[in-house]
């Protein structure tokens, strides 16, 4: 589903955020990217989303080489990849339903399709009764569930999650992880960057450990163990 081949990302000023990274992420996998702050987890997520261009190497997402993707095709890539971020990235002036529906509006879906699909996914994330609220009227956990709902509403084959539990308390984090696990069971490939030991250890899924942009470890049923203290 996702393939990275000798991917290197060097920022202006010489900071190496990804150093010759090669990875294969098959369809339906739930994979953690772990490592301390500055290890390159978020950069890899952004490279997979073509939010940043690679310096060297190739990335294939759903069979397409996204490193050579023309600019005008980037939105099409992003429509097939759901994204969840630590800071939720919700549109502040849209209601919960409008935020979730926005992902379908950009696809040009008619309102008759959007309304039931949004209702269904809000039911899934347990926010059906808060459809008309604005993000500022929700708790952090609820906002993150809206973000997950938006990422999943058009049933993308891939979801990229960058520290989705980073701003949440442990109990709320468990709720979000249960939700992501449930989505993964529908066949959606999930790549999640985190430095939350407890979650990684509890989930027992594939773990890629990064440090200074290099892959240090790739365990099929890994734990966070073996890495230094998080920063």
């Amino acid at each position: 589903m996702i393939r990275l081949e000798n991917v290197t990302k060097v920022y202006e000023g010489g900071t190496i955020a990804a150093n010759d990274v090669s990875l294969d992420i098959p369809k339906g996998e739930f994979m953690f990217l772990v490592g301390p702050s500055g290890s390159g987890k978020s950069t890899l997520i952004r490279l997979m989303l073509r939010d940043e261009p690679v310096t060297r190497g190739k990335i294939w997402v759903a069979g397409k080489d996204i490193t050579t993707l023309p600019k005008w095709k980037i939105p099409y890539l992003r429509r097939s990849v759901g994204t969840v971020f630590q800071d939720y990235k919700l549109l502040p002036n849209k209601t919960v339903a409008e935020n979730v529906g926005f992902a379908l509006e950009v696809l040009g879906r008619p309102r008759s399709v959007i309304a039931p699909q949004v209702a269904q996914v809000l039911e899934l994330v347990g926010l059906a009764d808060k459809a008309k609220r604005y993000p500022r009227q929700l708790s952090g956990g609820e906002q993150q569930r809206v973000s997950v709902a938006r990422a999943f509403v058009n049933r993308p084959p891939i979801m990229l999650c960058d520290e989705p539990t980073g701003n949440l308390d442990p109990k709320t984090s468990v709720g979000i992880m249960r939700l992501l696990d449930r989505i993964n069971r529908t066949g959606t490939t999930i790549v999640m960057a985190t430095h939350d030991h407890a979650i990684v250890d509890a989930m027992q899924r594939r773990v890629i450990a990064l440090d200074e942009g290099k892959v240090m470890r790739d365990d099929a049923l890994g734990t966070y163990e073996g890495l230094g203290e998080e920063e």
């Binding site: 005008w72 939105p75 099409y76 992003r78 429509r79 990235k89 549109l91 992902a103 950009v106």
Partner: peptide
């Protein structure tokens, strides 16, 4: 955010 969700320019 719109760009991340896949909105075209």
């Amino acid at each position: 955010i719109m760009k991340l969700v896949g909105a075209s320019n």
